[in-house]
């Protein structure tokens, strides 16, 4: 990435828009297929967390922070067509889910439709391995 892009990244921090959760957009799920097997969602939230676990995670929660970054990357890929985000996402998946395997990734976006929850695949990668990125 060119350093020339830095001012455009910094400006929203110095003069923020603060428009948090203005609307609830379709939400990405990152799914992975290993060696042609079934698609499986990555970074799945646990079924339950106790109050103690929630409190502990206030000071130490790297997995969750990393999972939220995958969400950001997914949105950058689909909304901005960012090749940099695509490379970063695939590199992280290869690093975390097995460099020795043939992997494929896809982004499924979930939203609420008239008949209930609906999902749509908006991105699917070519097969890749840990050598990528």
């Amino acid at each position: 990435m060119s350093l020339l892009r830095l001012p455009s990244l910094l400006l929203p921090a110095l003069i923020p828009s603060w428009r948090f959760f203005r609307a609830i957009a379709p939400s990405p799920r990152v799914e992975l297929r290993v060696n042609g097997g079934p698609w499986q969602e990555v970074a799945v939230a646990p079924a339950h967390l106790s109050l103690g676990q929630m409190l502990l995670r206030l000071i130490w929660n790297p997995q969750r922070t990393a999972a939220l970054y995958l969400v950001s990357l997914s949105e950058r890929i689909v909304e901005q067509g960012s090749h940099r985000a695509e490379a970063e996402l695939l590199e992280r998946l290869a690093r975390d889910y097995g460099r020795e395997h043939r992997l494929e990734a896809r982004l499924t976006f979930v939203t609420r439709g008239a008949a209930g929850l609906e999902s749509e695949v908006l991105y699917e990668s070519a097969p890749f391995t840990g050598g990528r990125g």
């Binding site: 609307a23 939230a45 079924a47 339950h48 995670r57 969400v71 929850l117």
Partner: peptide, 29 residues
């Protein structure tokens, strides 16, 4: 203000959607 301007927030649908399908809830329950 941006939430107040959105009918989905005023109806309670927005927060419902956050829990229902967003990537944010830390556990499925």
């Amino acid at each position: 203000q941006v939430k107040l301007a959105n009918p989905a927030w005023r109806r309670g649908d927005a927060l419902r959607d956050v829990f229902l399908y967003s990537a944010y809830p830390v556990s499925e329950d």
